[in-house]
Structure formats: C-alpha cells, structure tokens
Amino acid sequence: MIKICIKPLSVNEAFQGRKFKTPKYKAYEKHTLLLLPSKITLPPPPYRIDFEFGLSSSLSDWDNPIKPTQDIICKKYGINDKLISEGNVKKIKVKKGEEYFRFKIDSA
C-alpha cells in the first residue's frame, strides 16, 4: 500500500452546498497531488481500491474521507472512478498530528 502522511479531509469539509469545492478542499487537493507518487502501475480495470485512514478524532466517520481522497487519486492517475467496482476501508485511531491515508489499487 502507498502511504501519504496528510490528515484525510472529510466529505463534509470538502464541499459547500451541492458540488462546490471549499477553499479547504482546494488546498488539500493541491497538497495531496504533490505528495502522491508521480507514477504508479495500474492493473487493467475494473479496479478494486483499498484505503486505510489514520484519523485522530474518534468522532470521524469511517466513510467521510473516501470521496475526496478517491477523487484526487483518480485525478492524479487519470482513472475514471466509474471503473472502480470494489473497495475496502479501514479506520485506524492515531495521535493528533500523525494522520495519514494509505491506498492500493488492484484489479477487481
């Protein structure tokens, strides 16, 4: 799995109203795009994506960081997310300041 040391942004923080990106999302997207490896080897679609989110708040929902993080990964590697047919998500409690996400893309 690829590990990115950045606090995952929740979908609640990512969008205003229906589909307008918040300034916080725009900053997160820019920073995350720079942290992601420039290239990864992608298997043939359909894809399965595995996420592990290291979150410091026990109040964080396990599913909130999926959409913003997945959209940024898809943007970076030119993936159409409609080709993702399967996923697995794990939430890990970490200390504040040690937040991260990990991901892995395989064939479904």
Rank of each mutant, 00 (worst) to 15 (best):
I40K: 14
S38W: 01
K39Q: 13
D61C: 12
Y25I: 07
P65C: 11
Y77F: 13
T69Q: 00
D61Y: 08
Y28Q: 00
D61P: 04
T22M: 05
I66Q: 01
L34H: 10
T22F: 09
N64Y: 07
G87C: 03
P44C: 14
V89M: 12
K21Q: 01
L36W: 01
K96A: 08
T32S: 11
D81A: 11
K21N: 02
F101P: 15
Q70M: 10
Y25M: 13
K90S: 01
L42W: 06
K39G: 02
Y28C: 01
P23N: 15
I92R: 07
K21F: 04
I73F: 03
Y100V: 03
S85N: 06
S57P: 07
S57A: 14
Y77V: 13
Y77C: 09
A27M: 14
K93S: 12
K21L: 00
T22I: 11
P44E: 11
P37D: 04
L36H: 02
N64S: 15
I73C: 04
K95T: 05
P46R: 11
K96L: 05
P37Y: 01
K82S: 12
K24A: 15
L55E: 00
N80E: 14
P37F: 07
V89Y: 07
C74E: 09
T69N: 02
S60I: 14
S56N: 08
T41M: 10
P45W: 05
N80W: 08
L35Y: 12
S56C: 13
I40N: 11
D81H: 15
S57T: 14
C74L: 04
I79H: 02
E86V: 06
R102A: 09
S38P: 00
K96Y: 04
S38T: 09
T32P: 11
D71L: 09
I73A: 02
E99L: 09
Q70P: 01
P37E: 05
Y28T: 00
L59E: 07
D50M: 08
T41F: 12
I79W: 05
D63S: 12
L83Y: 09
W62R: 03
L33W: 15
P23W: 13
G97E: 06
K75H: 01
L55K: 02
P68L: 05
N80R: 15
F101D: 03
P45I: 03
K91H: 05
P44W: 13
K96H: 06
K24R: 09
R48E: 11
P43F: 14
D61N: 15
L55Y: 00
P46N: 08
K67E: 07
L55S: 00
L35C: 06
S56W: 06
Y47D: 01
N64C: 02
S60H: 06
V89N: 12
L55T: 01
I49P: 03
Q70N: 06
P23I: 03
G78S: 07
Q70R: 08
K24G: 08
P23K: 14
Y47Q: 02
K76Q: 08
H31V: 14
N88A: 12
I49A: 14
E99R: 06
K26Y: 01
S58Y: 12
L35N: 08
R48T: 05
E86F: 09
E99N: 12
K91N: 11
P46I: 15
P23D: 10
E99Q: 15
K30M: 03
D50G: 10
L59M: 05
G78R: 02
A27H: 02
C74F: 10
P43T: 10
